[in-house]
Every structure is written in structure tokens, then in C-alpha cells.
Amino acid sequence: MEYNEKDIIEKCKLGDNNAFEILIKNYDKKVYNMIYRIMGNKEDALDLTQEVFIKVYKGISTFRGDSSFSTWLYRLATNTCFDENRKKKNKKTHSLDKPIETEYGEFKRDLRDDTYNPDEMLIKKEIQNLVQKAISMLPEEQRVMIVLRDIQGFTYKEISEILQCSMGTVKSRISRGRLALKNILESLEEPFFKNYV
């Protein structure tokens, strides 16, 4: 079955659940990974991804096609993340506990994996965890930029549409975000850049 987004969206508006399932399958991975990188926590990411798609289901009748559907969807996703972060600020104990728990959980899984994984793989995973940790340390506005630009690969224009801000803002935030991320990675105990410089 050929994927025709316009048709699918029209069907969704009429309440066709099969069409909606196709729509979810098309986007869920991207949304989930994006949310995970912003939130730095897989459990939260799963819940929020679900929340986003439920919001899409409820709000799709209000989607008029002024922007592309993906832009609308990612805007919804980022806003959902911002809302969640705002809530977490209000209950600080949670925000301190949760990342540690997940960090621990992932670490556990890596240990299990290493029995049959080669060393290189292990190093790569460790590096990835550290990069994620560093991203999580960025301020929210810069973190979102790094996620959208460098992880998800959106263009500057797309980012400005998703976040509804000017190109200038996007440029300066990406620039500051990358420099900040570089500084965080440098400050970590692992000598990240030695191999590459």
C-alpha cells in the first residue's frame, strides 16, 4: 500500500483508526527518539510519545495543512517535552531521581550485553551514553537545537518552523549549543577528543 500522507490525514480526520495506525507507524520511531534525546530517559520518552500521538488523534481535525504535517507533529512533540520539563521543575525530587535510575538501568543492560559483544561495541555504547549525558546537561533551549539539528537532521528552516522562532535565533542557539556541548564533553573525565585531534 502506497503511503499518501494527505489521504491518510483526511481519513484520520474522519476517525479511521487504520489510517491513524499507519500514520503512527510512519512517525513513531522518529518522535520517540527525538523525545528520548530531549528528555534523556526512555520511560518518560515512551509515555510522552504515547501522549503526543493521543494529542495528534484528538487534534488532527484542527490541523489545516498550513504547515506540513511533520512540522506540526514535531512542534506538538517538542511542546509536550517542554510541558513535561516544566512540570518536573515543580516536583524536583522526581527530576533528580529519574535520570539516575535510567542511567543505572542502561548500564545494567550494557553489562549483560558485553558477554557476547566485542570490545569496540562496548566502547561505542559507553561513548554514546556519555554523549547523551552531556546533552542532558545542556539548557533546554540549546538541547532541543542539538537534538533537532545534529541528531534528527532538520534544516535550519525546518527548525525555525517547528519551534516557531526566527532563523537568527536558530543559528545563535545551535552555535552556542554546540560550543557548550563541546565544553561539557571536554570537561568529562574521558579524554574524548584525543583520538581525533
Binding site: R37, Q128, V131, D150, I151, L185, F192
Partner: peptide, 9 residues
């Protein structure tokens, strides 16, 4: 390098 680290995630 930072950027490519992110891209490789």
C-alpha cells in the same frame, strides 16, 4: 567532532 558524535547516536 561533537556534531558527528551526535549524528552517530
Amino acid at each position: 567532532e561533537t556534531v558527528s558524535l551526535c549524528r552517530d547516536l
